[in-house]
Amino acid sequence: MLSSYLTLAAILFCIGLYGALVKRNAVVVLFSIELMLNAVNLNLIAFAKYGAAPSLTGHIFTLFTISVAAAEAAVGVAVLIALFRSRGTVNIDEFDEMRR
């Protein structure tokens, strides 16, 4: 059963990766990152149950991840709002400050 969960997590992760690399709307990129985080959470929980030594540590870790993800989402959305205010767009193509 474990490998089924892991495969599902891999599928989710890859979809999220593709979205994060391709989508032009920064908000959608944030969604994709959440997808990848969720895939990781799924792995953690699956191992917590089906791993060699089941324990609650995986759960604790997932809780931490969720909290950090929440913080990330909040800060990310705040950054986007600030960007939108100064640039008038959240189109990721328009941001190429790293070139300079």
Binding site: K23, V28, E34, I66
Partner: peptide, 23 residues
């Protein structure tokens, strides 16, 4: 957190930035 808070947060993000269709 996810289904409740983060989704709502995302919706706020969309509302505050732009919500026209993706090209």
């Amino acid at each position: 957190i996810y289904t409740g808070a983060i989704s709502i947060l995302m919706i706020f993000g969309i509302m505050m930035t732009e919500h026209r269709a993706e090209g």
